[in-house]
């Protein structure tokens, strides 16, 4: 091989290394990496992230996605966690704790901890998570097209072909099935009766949704008239210019609580705790409530009646929600998915 040829190969190799190096040179400053739901990121940025960055003099790196997908990623990165704190559903927090992915939270470092509603202080009774918001799950429906008085009304022959139902793998899926089971008078933890009822209508039901945002478009296009949703996705439906109402079925509403967790082996626990405390503080929780982003878990937050009406506000409301206990959710999940796939999936 002649010398020039060698040089050329060397040069191209170097060029390649340089481009790769440039790729790596991102984000070397002090950062806190958080993993959150993708909802309302504009509001979060304005109300939570930007103010916190000013206080800590650090940069927030935000990963967004739904609870299940982000948990799967935490599992994949178990050996070398890339995030410093995450917010997930209560059941997913318990799943993470059982999988050994998370650490206990040192609540003595959270100045605002004692201001939280009791239900939010340690939702799974294992010291591994702290609740920061809760929400009701009920049915958003076209009040001009249908009347919803019970969860079972959704499956009425004249309605079933105009509804979307949450897929069993989403956070809204099991609670909706749980309420349907109550309406059918067969509320066993395996949700068998409810899954069978949905399966019986699987050809009529428009879609088994995984992303609740899609429902706004589907409602607008009159693809659907109703769907069980979490209160946190309610706001866009009110802007459609259509008569969309929030049902109060006789069986009651279900819902969920979202919690903060810290991955095991995270390198920035002090900073993560500082951020969590900031997020739980009265001012921030109030600001988020006033923008209809999150219902407060901090009992010092007082909001006007008008705002309270659009949220899941107050401890009484929180207590009235019919929640599936995390442990039940976790123990049953595989069975639910299995019977769902058998009855609904095909």
């Amino acid at each position: 091989m002649n010398a020039t040829m060698q040089k050329a190969i060397l040069a191209s190799g170097t060029a390649l290394m340089l481009t790769m190096g440039a790729a790596q040179a991102f984000a070397q400053e002090k950062t806190l990496t958080i993993s959150v739901y993708a909802l309302a990121q504009d509001e979060y940025k304005q109300l939570v992230y930007d103010p916190f960055e000013k206080i800590c003099g650090c940069k927030l790196v935000v990963e967004t996605g739904n609870s299940v997908e982000r948990l799967a990623k935490m599992e994949a990165n178990k050996a070398n966690p890339v995030i410093d704190m995450a917010v997930v559903s209560m059941a997913d927090a318990l799943a993470a704790s059982r999988a050994g992915l998370i650490d206990k939270i040192d609540t003595s470092k959270l100045a605002n901890f004692n201001k939280l509603y009791d239900v939010a202080k340690d939702p799974n009774k294992d010291g591994m998570s702290v609740g920061y918001t809760f929400y009701a799950t009920s049915i958003a429906y076209r009040s001009d097209k249908m009347k919803i008085e019970s969860w079972a009304d959704l499956l009425k022959p004249e309605y079933a072909s105009h509804i979307a139902w949450p897929n069993v793998t989403t956070n809204q899926g099991p609670p909706a099935l749980y309420m349907l089971g109550q309406a059918l008078g067969k509320d066993t933890p395996d949700l068998k009766a409810a899954i069978e009822a949905v399966g019986g209508k699987k050809d009529e039901i428009v879609t088994f949704y995984e992303k609740s945002s899609q429902l706004v478009q589907l409602m607008k296009q009159e693809e659907i008239w109703a769907a069980p949703i979490g209160r946190f996705t309610w706001a866009p439906f009110t802007k459609l210019g259509l008569p969309v109402a929030w049902a109060t079925p006789k069986e009651g509403q279900t819902g969920g609580m979202n919690v903060m967790i810290m991955p095991k082996g995270g390198k920035k626990s002090e900073l993560a705790l500082q951020f969590m405390d900031f997020w739980l503080s009265t001012d921030i929780q109030k600001a988020l409530a006033e923008k209809f982003v999150d219902s407060p878990a901090n009992k010092d937050v007082k909001v006007s009646d008008e705002i309270a009406n659009n949220l899941t506000y107050g401890e009484e409301t929180a207590k009235s929600l019919k929640l599936i206990p995390s442990a039940t959710a976790l123990d049953q999940r595989a069975g639910w998915v299995k019977s769902w796939n058998e009855k609904v999936g095909q």
């Binding site: 799967a72 793998t169 088994f208 949704y209 995984e210």
Partner: peptide, 20 residues
Amino acid sequence: GGSKVLMLETLMYQQVSVSN
């Protein structure tokens, strides 16, 4: 298609991202 009309590629994504 969504989860109602799965194909192999969407099923694969589900297996990884939801079921691990």
